[in-house]
């Protein structure tokens, strides 16, 4: 007797969200089953890999990833072009320099840089503030206006500042990244609040707050799993937005991606170890439902894309 594979039936489906314009536009989401279970549902879109670019030089990044980027890090536009050439599906511009504790760049400066980056590449753009709740509202407003028509993903909107950032995204036809802090109920609540202010839930990308392998990855994994189960099994319209995982920023500050060979010879060579750390973190996020990843090392991006291609 042939083995009958037990199949789960799902009621819901993840929204399709398109980013960018023209030939290089990227659509994420659309899944009708848990990640990569092709025998249970359909997956019209591959998870997208965005490479991170900053508005300041990556001086604080560990050498392994800084060296991989080389001279491109000196200019945001050049860096973005480098990412596009390295095979990234998207560029994620993080405006770290606008943070008051960094260079406290003005919203106008940020808008100018965002415009330059947008002009340098034709792949879609994600634009992230520095994570400073108040400053981000001004910065992202300016940036959203400067990149109007580019169909970017703007963020991250959090509970404290979502109104202004969502309004800026709405006024300039961008998509919105909504972040909650590792809490499935608060993730849902933020999406409800956004919908209540008139922001179309099908234009939201959820950021459940990522972490690095060995540093709480399992918490993110479990939150994402619950979000996806609510979306697919309970057909919860507020949980059916695609998910983005901000990986590089977490991975490239743990000791496994920085400790030199001589300090921990039993861990293997730093170069491969560090890249592997980013790829394995990415694989965990993909397995729990990530529709989009933000990564840093071109070598890790290449491997993550290979993994996605093999699993789809």
């Amino acid at each position: 007797m042939a083995l009958a594979i037990p199949k789960e039936t799902y009621n819901g489906k993840i929204y399709n969200v398109q980013l960018g314009t023209g030939d290089k536009a990227v659509t994420i989401g659309g899944a009708s089953a848990l990640p990569f279970l092709g025998f249970e549902g359909t997956f019209p879109n591959k998870p997208a890999v965005a490479m991170e670019v900053m508005d300041i030089a990556p001086d604080e990044w560990p050498d392994t990833v800084k060296n991989a980027i080389g001279g491109a890090g000196a200019s945001p536009a050049q860096w973005a072009k480098f990412c596009q050439d390295a095979g990234a599906d998207m560029v994620a511009l993080r405006l770290m320099g606008t943070h008051p504790d960094q260079q406290d760049k003005s919203p106008d400066d940020a808008a100018k840089i965002a415009g330059e980056v947008a002009a340098a590449v034709d792949i879609p753009l994600m634009i992230l503030g520095s994570g400073h709740t108040e400053k981000d509202t001004q910065v992202l407003q300016a940036v959203a206006t400067a990149t109007r028509g580019k169909n970017c993903a703007i963020g991250k909107a959090v509970e404290e500042n979502y109104k202004t950032i969502a309004a800026a995204a709405m006024a300039n036809d961008h998509k919105l990244i909504a972040m909650s802090q590792l809490d499935v109920n608060l993730a849902k609540q933020l999406n409800i609040l956004l919908s209540q202010m008139g922001f179309d839930k099908e234009r939201i990308i959820m950021d459940p707050m990522s972490s690095a392998l060995g540093y709480g990855l399992e918490y993110t994994y479990s939150v994402m799993e619950r979000i996806r189960l609510a979306a697919l099994l309970q057909n919860d319209p507020m949980m059916q937005t695609p998910i983005v995982c901000d990986i590089g920023v977490n991975v490239w500050k743990v000791k496994e991606t920085m400790a030199p060979d001589a300090d921990v010879p039993e861990w293997g060579g730093l170069e491969d170890r560090a890249k592997a750390w980013e790829v394995i973190t990415a694989s965990g996020m993909l397995a729990s439902g990530a529709d989009m990843l933000i990564m840093r090392h071109p070598g890790a991006v290449e491997k993550a894309k290979e993994l996605i291609a093999e699993l789809m």
């Binding site: 499935v184 109920n185 608060l186 849902k188 609540q189 619950r226 919860d236 319209p237 507020m238």
Partner: peptide
């Protein structure tokens, strides 16, 4: 447990 809790669950 049929729907996920959020503070605004009544508004959905």
């Amino acid at each position: 447990g049929k729907t996920m809790y959020a503070h605004s669950f009544l508004d959905m």
